[in-house]
Design a protein around this nucleic acid. Structure first.
Length: 855
RNA sequence: GCGAGAGUGGCGGAACUGGCAGACGCACUGGACUUAGGAUCCAGCGGGUGACACCGUGGGGGUUCGAGUCCCCCCUCUCGCACCA
């Protein structure tokens, strides 16, 4: 063997072996328990970054560990291949999105393979392949049949110059991020998934996902935002019609003093007609509607409104209620109208004070009273109802139910539930996405594309004009078609689907990626689903994870999968961070633009900034490829795992990487230094050695126990590695003097390689082979520990006097409290602290600690 | 504002149900081997002291024989949501 550790050649050798032997290809096997571990698939942006390295290393350790534990492990990888960066590349560099994407995939696949991840590459999929999205289109048709998809007009951000819809994140201060032109709100028809039909189920199951981080579940609950209350009708005064409001506080209905409508409320133009206030109100409405979202949700957005001149009637009191238009009322939530109770709602209170509107108190604290004129804020705490007709004196909590019943009896309103969750708009006026499979016929209306005609293939053989991509709406060869129903001329839908749709079911497709006869092969998805362990970034806490849960329930209801939830356990790993460096002259600096604390270009001292998430814009990035070229994949993996537990942020450090590399070199040398006899020595197998060999064996078995617990119970690889480092230190300091010693040493080396293998698979396989083993570590069972080897004859007990450590004593392992105390009191230092005092109490924690309480 | 999480040596981080605070690594210091070393090995490394004592887990209080860990109040930071009626 080479006495020097050469990661490059070792890693290439084992990567080749795994590839040639199809080591990680799996099929269904009813005789073994399955384990499905999945990392969120990447967008093929061009190169992998450290976030990928970390995410995929964590997943790989889990996969390899479970494999050694005897599970039939599914560990697939693929590409979230549709999306805007491909179109931007086309605009900027004139490369076709398809070519750009496929080249990126090829390159990144090479990078992932170079990391030594144990993927079953035979299941690889790319969402931009028609063989993938054809099933997404098929499902769209099924959902259409179930009325889970519908089409409606919706307001979108539109850039006239670029002729496209922009996502909210692409609107910067009301202007297009690309051309800087003003973005306008535009009503456009679009397709929606009826996720709200599953709102209750999605919410209920958040209580049945114990394997998910609580904060993710909380975020999802907030996102769904269920509120229970009542819908109440307020008839218009002096004319037909009514305003319906949703309220969670029916107990405050007697305190309504005005009504607030959203600027977008359809009743507004009608209400103001002929009131003489028309011009003023419509000007206000226009002004509010023109403000962009950022402005309307800003911190300091002032509550403003205007009186319409119209009134409605509170049917509980018979009072006339003035109707206002207010800028803080949202059309998208509830009914777009809010009954205002200034005494008990802070926003209404502020509004009432500003426009000098009456405040009527209808809830008072027990034993107290409130003076509307003296109030400086709304009273929102519980209390008893007053000025509320038949409900006076009732605790307001009970009042909620009673008022609802009263409203229902009289037909004034009804119990109602509202959600913050909206239906999922999936239409994108984009080129690089999955076409929506419907046809618009002037005679028949919207006609689904017949199943037999799927997939509706995205035309890839098109030439783009300079500087922009071509939406499908500008490609006649695509959209000109005939109606499947009446055969007359018709137009294809030119919207493509949101890319979140592809990522909402890829995990199920991995179970049967080659299935041609349908979307999912029921037998195989039943074997593999659900995903036992899903791993990815916290940034997907709501959207991707909520959409995937929704889609899983749709697939279940269509009989395609048998599970209610896609991911049993979820691990959200922290970000990879690094210190930023800045030069007064040249701005942010890359790590290698700094030498000895100075900018390499001008020599000015570099200012160290805060530790932040690695990002290209701040230049605090380390390229995995350079790292692997210099240290090898095992070092990159080891450091990613060692620097922090997976759920926490990881601070990158060059010195830390050096440390990881140094450790692997020591492991290598441990075998190299003893290569003349190690291969010919059997591991220790029975009997009880004495002295150093026995101590070494105890360390070996204790390490196995600790590493197993750290991985099994909480994926704390950092402490698992620390334990392995301790074992290495013990082995390196051990001189095998006799045959039992050599056998114990060999046993220890084997254990070290086994427990490290999931984390650093290449070096451990190589050293394992050098030991003379025939079966690769990948196919070797995870080691168990021998309780007998852990047994000690003598133990150390800490002795405290009044809670302070005053000594430690050696006692026989089975010694009882009395015996320990006798030994302890004989200890000179302990005796010194007991002198002249009386022991009033002795607390003995068996095998660990004795505390003598003295006075 | 609301919700969640976190504050431990010079640094990253350990300490499972209250029981030796600082495992492991980095950095640093001293030494050995060396033509040399940024390789390797040995030793040291919270503050304090000559050595003890003593002080130390953001701050203050409490429970307990014993608190980084449990309870109350406060401070700081990070993340998420933010007019949701």
């Amino acid at each position: 063997m080479d006495v020097r550790y050469q990661p490059q050649s070792v890693e290439e050798k084992w990567q080749r072996r795994w590839r040639e032997a199809d080591t990680f290809a799996v099929g269904e096997d009813a005789s073994r328990p399955k384990y499905y571990v999945l990392e969120m698939f990447p967008y093929p942006s061009g190169r992998i970054h450290m976030g990928h390295v970390r995410n995929y290393t964590i997943g790989d350790v889990v996969a390899r560990y479970k494999r050694m534990r005897g599970f039939n492990v599914l560990h697939p990888m693929g590409w979230d291949a549709f999306g805007m960066p491909a179109e931007n590349a086309a605009i900027q560099h004139g490369v076709h999105p398809s070519k750009w994407t496929r080249e990126n995939i090829a390159y990144m696949k090479g990078q992932l393979q170079r990391m030594g991840f144990s993927y079953d590459w035979s299941r690889e999929l790319a969402t931009c392949d028609p063989s993938y999205y054809r099933w997404e289109q098929w499902l769209f048709l099924k959902m259409l049949e179930q009325d889970l998809v519908y089409r409606r007009e919706t307001a979108v951000n539109w850039c006239d110059t670029c002729q496209t819809v922009l996502a909210n994140e692409q609107v910067e201060q009301g202007a297009c991020w690309r051309c800087g032109d003003v973005v306008v709100e535009k009503e456009l028809p679009g397709w929606f998934f009826r996720i709200t039909r599953y709102a209750d189920e999605l919410l209920d199951w958040t209580d049945r996902l114990p394997g998910w981080p609580p904060q993710v579940l909380t975020m999802q609950r907030n996102w769904i935002g269920k509120s229970v209350g009542a819908e109440v009708a307020f008839p218009l005064d002096g004319r037909d019609g009514e305003i319906r409001v949703f309220t969670t506080r029916p107990d405050t209905l007697y305190g309504v003093t005005f009504m607030s409508l959203a600027a977008e409320h359809p009743l507004v133009p009608e209400l103001v007609r002929g009131t003489g206030r028309e011009a003023e109100v419509l000007a206000f409405v226009d002004r509010v509607r023109r403000q962009d979202k950022a402005e309307r949700t800003a911190d300091d957005y002032e509550k403003e409104g205007v009186f319409t001149g119209a009134y409605c009637v509170n049917q509980l009191t018979g009072e006339r209620v003035p109707i206002y238009v207010a800028n803080f009322v949202l059309m998208e939530y509830g009914t777009g109208a809010v009954m205002a109770v200034p005494a008990h709602d802070q926003r209404d209170f502020e509004f009432a004070r500003r426009y000098d509107l009456p405040v009527t108190v209808v809830i008072e604290p027990d034993g107290g009273s409130l003076d509307p004129a003296a109030m400086t804020e709304a009273y929102v705490a519980p209390g008893r109802m007053v000025r509320s007709g038949p409900f006076d004196g009732l605790p307001n909590r009970d009042g909620i139910e009673r008022v609802i019943a009263y409203l229902e009896e009289r037909g004034f309103g009804k119990r109602a539930v509202h959600y913050r969750l909206r239906d999922w708009g999936i239409s994108r006026q984009r080129y690089w996405g999955a076409p929506i499979p419907v046809i618009h016929c002037p005679a028949c209306g919207v006609v689904p594309v017949p199943e037999a005609d799927l997939p509706v293939v995205l035309p890839e053989d098109v030439a783009f004009p300079e500087g922009r991509v071509l939406p499908l709406a500008e490609i006649p060869e695509f959209y000109e078609t005939s109606c499947p129903r009446c055969t007359g001329p018709a137009r294809r839908e030119t919207d493509t689907m949101d890319t979140f749709v592809e990522s909402s079911w890829y995990f199920a497709r991995y179970a049967c990626a080659d299935f041609q006869a349908g979307m999912l092969d029921r037998a195989r998805t039943e074997y593999w689903m659900p995903v036992d362990q899903y791993i990815g970034g916290i940034e997907h806490a709501v959207l991707h994870l909520l959409y995937s849960r929704f889609y899983t329930k749709v697939l279940r209801d269509l009989g395609l999968v048998a599970v209610d939830e896609p991911f049993t356990n979820l691990l959200t790993q922290g970000m990879v961070c690094m210190e930023t460096q800045r030069c007064p002259e040249h701005g942010w600096l890359l790590p290698d633009e700094v030498a000895d604390g100075a900018c390499t270009r001008c020599g000015a001292p570099a200012e160290a900034g805060r530790v932040e998430k690695m990002s290209k814009s701040k230049k605090n990035v380390v390229d995995p490829e350079g790292l692997v070229a210099r240290y090898g994949a095992d070092t990159a993996r080891l450091f990613s795992l060692f620097a922090a537990p997976p759920e926490k942020d990881l601070e990158w450090s060059e010195e830390g990487v050096e440390g990881a590399y140094r450790f692997l070199r020591r492991v290598w040398r441990l075998v190299a230094d003893h290569r003349d006899w190690l291969p010919g020595t059997e591991p220790f197998a029975g009997g009880a050695p004495d002295g150093p060999a026995r101590d070494l064996r105890r360390k070996v078995h204790d390490t196995i126990r600790r590493v197993t617990a750290d991985i099994e119970e909480r994926f704390h690889f950092n402490t698992a590695i620390a334990a392995a480092m301790e074992l290495l230190n013990a082995l390196a300091g051990f001189s095998p003097a006799d045959e039992p010693g050599r056998q114990a040493f060999r046993e220890g080396v084997e254990a070290l390689l086994k427990v490290l293998h999931p984390m650093v698979p290449h070096i451990t396989e190589e050293l394992w082979e050098i030991l003379g083993e025939q079966t690769p570590l990948a196919d070797t069972p995870w080691p168990g520990w021998d309780e007998a080897a852990l047994v000690r004859d003598e133990i150390t007990v800490v002795v405290q006097v009044n809670g302070k450590v005053r000594g430690r004593v050696q006692v026989p392992a089975g010694a009882d409290g009395g015996a320990v105390r006798a030994v302890a009191e004989a200890d000179p230092n302990v005796a010194r602290h007991l002198e002249g005092k009386t022991v009033v109490k002795a607390v003995y924690v068996p095998g660990r600690l004795l505390n003598l309480v003295v006075r």
